[in-house]
Computed example of a mutant assay.
Amino acid sequence: MSWSAILFILIGASAGGFINGLAGSGTALFALGFILVALDPVSAVALVTLMSVVTGFQGLWEVRSALSRNVPRLMRFILPGIAGVPVGVGLLSLIDAETLKLIIAIFLILYGGFFSFRANLPKFDRRTPVIDSTIALVGGVLGGMASLSGALPMMWLSMRPWPKAETRALLQPFNMSVLGSTTLMLWWRGAYDPQTVTAFLIALPVSLLSAQIGLMVFRRITDDMFRRLLIGLSLLLGLGILIRALV
Rank of each mutant, 00 (worst) to 15 (best):
residue 1 M to R: 15
residue 1 M to Q: 12
residue 3 W to V: 11
residue 4 S to E: 10
residue 5 A to G: 13
residue 11 I to Y: 05
residue 16 G to Y: 01
residue 20 N to A: 07
residue 38 A to D: 05
residue 41 P to W: 01
residue 42 V to D: 02
residue 47 L to Q: 04
residue 48 V to Y: 00
residue 52 S to R: 09
residue 61 W to Q: 14
residue 62 E to P: 10
residue 64 R to E: 00
residue 68 S to R: 15
residue 72 P to S: 11
residue 73 R to S: 13
residue 74 L to C: 10
residue 74 L to A: 11
residue 76 R to P: 09
residue 76 R to S: 13
residue 77 F to K: 06
residue 80 P to S: 06
residue 84 G to Q: 02
residue 85 V to Y: 03
residue 91 L to C: 13
residue 92 L to A: 14
residue 93 S to D: 04
residue 93 S to V: 15
residue 94 L to S: 13
residue 94 L to V: 13
residue 96 D to T: 08
residue 96 D to Y: 07
residue 96 D to E: 12
residue 98 E to T: 11
residue 101 K to I: 09
residue 114 F to W: 08
residue 117 F to A: 08
residue 121 L to A: 11
residue 122 P to Q: 12
residue 123 K to W: 01
residue 123 K to M: 10
residue 125 D to W: 03
residue 125 D to N: 15
residue 126 R to K: 15
residue 129 P to T: 03
residue 134 T to F: 11
residue 138 V to R: 05
residue 138 V to S: 10
residue 138 V to T: 09
residue 140 G to R: 03
residue 142 L to P: 09
residue 145 M to E: 04
residue 146 A to C: 14
residue 147 S to F: 11
residue 149 S to R: 02
residue 149 S to N: 13
residue 150 G to H: 04
residue 151 A to W: 03
residue 153 P to E: 02
residue 154 M to W: 00
residue 155 M to R: 12
residue 157 L to M: 15
residue 157 L to P: 12
residue 159 M to S: 12
residue 162 W to G: 03
residue 165 A to M: 06
residue 165 A to C: 04
residue 166 E to W: 11
residue 167 T to A: 10
residue 167 T to W: 01
residue 169 A to E: 01
residue 169 A to P: 07
residue 170 L to D: 01
residue 171 L to M: 14
residue 174 F to G: 03
residue 176 M to Y: 02
residue 178 V to Q: 03
residue 178 V to F: 00
residue 179 L to N: 15
residue 179 L to K: 14
residue 183 T to D: 00
residue 184 L to C: 13
residue 187 W to D: 05
residue 187 W to N: 07
residue 189 R to Q: 13
residue 190 G to N: 09
residue 190 G to S: 08
residue 193 D to L: 11
residue 195 Q to W: 00
residue 195 Q to F: 00
residue 195 Q to M: 09
residue 203 A to R: 08
residue 210 S to W: 01
residue 214 G to H: 03
residue 216 M to T: 06
residue 223 D to M: 08
residue 225 M to N: 12
residue 233 L to Y: 00
residue 236 L to Q: 02
residue 238 G to K: 11
residue 240 G to I: 04
